[in-house]
Design a protein around this nucleic acid. Sequence first.
DNA 1: CTGTTAGCGCATTCAC
DNA 2: GTGAATGCGCTAACAG
Lengths: 344, 344
Amino acid sequence: MARQVGVSQAAVSYAYNRPEKVSAEQRERIFAVAEELGYAGPNPAGRALRTGKVGALGLVLTDSLSYAFHDPGAASLMRGISEVGELAQVALTLLPAPLATVPEAAADTSLALVDGFLIYALPDAHPMVNLVLKRGLPVVAIDGPQLPGHSFVGIDDHSAARSAAEHLLTLGHRDVGILASRLSADGRTGEVSAARISRAKDRVLKARVRGYLEPFGEALRAAPAVYEAGGFDYEKSRAAAEALLDARHVTAVLAATDVMALAVLDAARDRGIRVPEQLSVIGFDDIPAAAAADLTTIRQSQVAKGAHAARLLLEAVSAPAQAATVTLPTDLVVRGSTAPPPPN
Amino acid sequence: MARQVGVSQAAVSYAYNRPEKVSAEQRERIFAVAEELGYAGPNPAGRALRTGKVGALGLVLTDSLSYAFHDPGAASLMRGISEVGELAQVALTLLPAPLATVPEAAADTSLALVDGFLIYALPDAHPMVNLVLKRGLPVVAIDGPQLPGHSFVGIDDHSAARSAAEHLLTLGHRDVGILASRLSADGRTGEVSAARISRAKDRVLKARVRGYLEPFGEALRAAPAVYEAGGFDYEKSRAAAEALLDARHVTAVLAATDVMALAVLDAARDRGIRVPEQLSVIGFDDIPAAAAADLTTIRQSQVAKGAHAARLLLEAVSAPAQAATVTLPTDLVVRGSTAPPPPN
DNA sequence: CTGTTAGCGCATTCAC
DNA sequence: GTGAATGCGCTAACAG
């Protein structure tokens, strides 16, 4: 306790926080002694306990932390978050939300010292969601899950996906495959039943797959093949793409994400299938790599999502605010990976 | 206080943290009451105050937070950090270190609740460094500054840069330009004097520039032109590249970073200067885009740096450890952006 | 195994 | 203006 040693007692608190409530001279003396003693100023933990404010926002991310730095969408999202001006004064705490959360680990992570939570793309019933909710702090969910009574920022995945499917339909495609990432965390891959889609835990993926399916009522020659990759990464996507292309004859593939679509492109090239002449491919997200690959896709702005969400959370933290739902626009960006199906 | 209401008092702490020290029945009752009262379990702030542990690591980044998500190097670094296994249990707190830190803001940020600091590429006398040091927590610096008594992870920027310059010399270049990012935070741009280089605040940049200069003793036709961009981003780099190319006749440019080198490439293309026939360009870092642009550069692994640093810090946090200095290897990667100078 | 007590460092109220 | 006293919520140590 610096207070004992040097000059006075808890007036040192004023010296740091309320300069006007203490004489300049006193202040000087206090700082001098602090310097001498190597006192670093108010301890954050004590302050946090007393004031209830921490000065940090939490960002809860699926899977491991490293996921966030591999996924282009997450990267853009964080860029958007970081662009919110007020955040210059606030720290951003990255909270990993492992899929298989053992209770202890959950408790561990739940000690996160933050003033509010940003949740990004967690499956609907993820244990971390409950932990976060229990804390009673402001919460803004991005993409999912949609929590009653809490703010939400996202897009209309269903309509956006439908518009992509309609684009294929208009071009004349009748044999279509759909590539899904991870409908449930049970590690299943391969062809997917309608029931499994209904039970999907990931609202974004579910909406996209349903949107992709919707326009193909009677129009298809056969029910569209929906294949599940079991994950979001390129490797799993590539394997699923190969499985789909090898098992089914399709003239077009609707992928749940751009990363998956790029995997389809590569798998097709590998097999000598020409895009778009023999196979049309559509992605979702419009990540930077999509333009480079000339991929038709649905554009959404992760940066805008992040910025909106961060702003909402900052507001809610500083003053109790009503829950808001922000739906950002999307665009079908037609590039060179889609064309009418081959005549045959 | 849930304790007052329900069953007993501070034994509820045991219920959460030491299941074996309390009867199962008692535990049940406590959890039931907690549920009823909406008690979220131990409050992180109280726990942090009591135990002195927070469960989070701080990463201090230059400029605004958004810098981190624009700079490819920082992104890779974070990926490396996040790949350290134990970090799955720990949160990562991103701490922005604004260049012009007003005292109040500094105090604000200094309330970061973390168990240790990772410092990435801060200028030598940045105010944030002192704030961090004062806290007395474990610190690992990445790239800079090199703090006596604290761990450090980096590369030998000087030798690596020298090897790049030697490569140019061997090819026969005698008119060389050097592109520096930001030697001091005073916003100056354009041609740089030797004195300004000596005063440089950024140890990495200083080492690189000096390494670039070193091999050109008597060999040059004129003293190498060193141009400063005033920042790290593409726009500033592009402007500096244009200034250099327009003002000086050089057959080669050594850029302080790949981002800057890519800007040189673009500026050259714009002017109809063919690379490598008329102009050789060398970058530094080997970011992913460097390979795509066929840029000769010095490879270093940001991912490895991040991983090493995170591991060192984690160790230091769990048990007092001695300061370590890790120097990671680099490689000159010769690609298509370098060739002998034109005959003339 | 259970209950009691004390103090982590702070910001704040109240007296002076 | 300044000094003393209080409690934020928790955990560790001890006493029962």
